[in-house]
């Protein structure tokens, strides 16, 4: 093969990759925090005894989970302006990630809530805890603890999925990769490097979530 690798050709463009990693990290953190928050509310709504709200949330979850993220992103970015809502590419990307992760985490957290034995809730009621207290201490925390690994995996998936945000000109990591290879045609070198960067980011994210999980769930146990 006549092809000669030249990883040095990427060096002049390193800022694009660093900026891309920062934006990917920002999208992931905001998307994860707000998305999981949305998921908690969604799961509560699903578990609540108000059938209309529960059904609306159900439709939202199914619509999002069964269509591709890219299509959701396009509708938010190119479709909403027609309704008079104009978002920057960053806002659109963040919104799409929140909406997407919100649907998945609703489902994951709901599964955790269903696994809480009814007796625990009855016990809490007999201790005269109010509904908010019961949801927070007896239902939500143990449920989150149970599904934390699944939720962590989903957050990593969403981070990797954020790579399609480059299609609406959000300058995240894949954007940097595709831009560099368009300038200098060094697709291999760039993709090898970017794959490595994604791997590092997802390992760090997973570790971070593990630490967060320990902080949230383990400490309380001994209180």
């Amino acid at each position: 093969m006549a092809y000669k690798f030249d990883f040095g050709a990427i060096v002049p463009h390193w800022e694009l990759l660093v900026d891309g990693m920062i934006l990917t990290a920002e999208l992931t953190v905001i998307g994860a925090v707000v998305g999981v928050g949305l998921g908690i509310m969604g799961a509560w709504a699903r578990a609540s005894r108000a059938p209309v709200i529960s059904q609306i949330v159900g439709v939202y979850v199914e619509l999002i989970r069964n269509t591709p993220f890219l299509v959701q992103l396009f509708f938010i970015f190119f479709g909403l302006p027609a309704l008079g809502v104009k978002l920057t590419e960053f806002q659109a990307a963040v919104l799409a990630m929140i909406v997407n992760l919100g649907a998945y985490s609703t489902e994951i957290i709901r599964a955790g809530i269903l696994a809480i034995p009814q007796g625990q809730i009855e016990a809490a009621q007999s201790l005269a805890m109010n509904r908010v207290q019961i949801f927070r201490y007896v239902v939500l925390l143990p449920a989150l603890k149970k599904i934390w690994p699944a939720l962590s995996s989903q957050i990593v998936i969403v981070m990797l999925g954020s790579s399609v945000c480059s299609q609406i000109a959000a300058e995240e990591l894949t954007f940097g990769a595709n831009y560099i290879q368009a300038i200098n045609f060094r697709a291999f070198e760039v993709y090898f490097v970017v794959t490595g960067l994604y791997l590092v980011m997802s390992i760090l994210l997973r570790m971070g979530l593990k630490v967060l999980g320990n902080y949230l769930f383990e400490r309380r146990r001994h209180v």
Binding site: T174, A187, F188, Y191, F192, Y198, S202
Partner: peptide, 21 residues
Amino acid sequence: ELFQGTPLLMQLFIVFFGLPL
């Protein structure tokens, strides 16, 4: 860790275009 932690797109790219190298 490797295959969950990297985008599928990059995995396919490297298999398809990397092996010929």
